[in-house]
């Protein structure tokens, strides 16, 4: 089983964002994507999530894999409490409460998303993804709006699951990448050809 982008070409307009991109990842571990804004990091995640189809090439994700996403926006259902938001996608009833405890939001489980700060909403979105017990965790800038202590806490949570699932993280700062002890794929526009993760 492998997770791969194979000779993927993708564009939103006429100019290709990704051209013949090939990248293969193992089925367990944490990998970061890093590069300047607009270089295609989020697009690589969207392709993996099945939200975009490549214009040519193929994206391989094993059949039946559960995908837990954290998008750039928190995407919490505004009409549901934090707990309900997490429980709706959780693998089992207990998973939601456990995940909220892990991200430090247990006391806010009955709050609605509009009552949360930006950082809390970010953590709620992360709890939702983790509670799914996914095989593939896709995190697009998960540390945005979090202070250093919370970054550390979230990184620990992600590190705990590194042998159970594949985690692909869009992370801008070297500090975040070091906290995750992850190999990083550096993207430089135009993103083209074979890509490989490297240890910083």
């Amino acid at each position: 089983m492998k997770i791969a982008w194979e000779q993927v070409t993708f564009s939103y307009g006429e100019k290709p964002l990704l051209r013949d991109v090939t990248l293969t990842l193992p089925e367990r571990g944490i990998f970061c994507l890093s590069g300047p804004s607009g270089c295609g990091k989020s697009t690589l995640l969207r392709l993996l999530a099945g939200l975009e189809a490549p214009q040519s090439g193929a994206v391989c994700v094993p059949v039946g894999w559960r995908i837990g996403p954290v998008f750039q926006e928190d995407r919490l259902l505004p009409w549901r409490t934090v707990l309900e938001n997490v429980a709706l996608f959780a693998a089992d009833p207990g998973a939601a409460e456990t995940a909220l405890e892990r991200v430090g939001l247990a006391e806010w489980s009955k709050a609605f998303p509009h009552q949360l700060s930006g950082g809390m909403a970010r953590r709620a979105a992360l709890a939702r993804a983790v509670a799914m017990r996914p095989d593939l965790l896709l995190l697009d800038e998960p540390f945005n709006g979090l202070d250093p202590d919370l970054r550390r806490q979230i990184a620990d949570l992600l590190l705990e699951g590194r042998d159970e699932r594949l985690t692909v993280v869009v992370a801008h700062t070297a500090e975040d990448r070091q906290m995750l002890r992850a190999q990083t794929v550096f993207l430089t526009p135009p993103v083209t050809g074979q890509l490989s993760p490297v240890q910083e």
Partner: peptide, 27 residues
């Protein structure tokens, strides 16, 4: 659309997508 994308990636069933996303959006 972003909530519908979330439902799609997380494989929320069509019934639950209606109940938890579409119907509340219509209210």
């Amino acid at each position: 659309v972003r909530l519908l994308e979330l439902a799609r990636v997380c494989r929320l069933s069509p019934g639950r997508t209606w109940l938890h996303i579409r119907i509340p959006s219509v209210m």
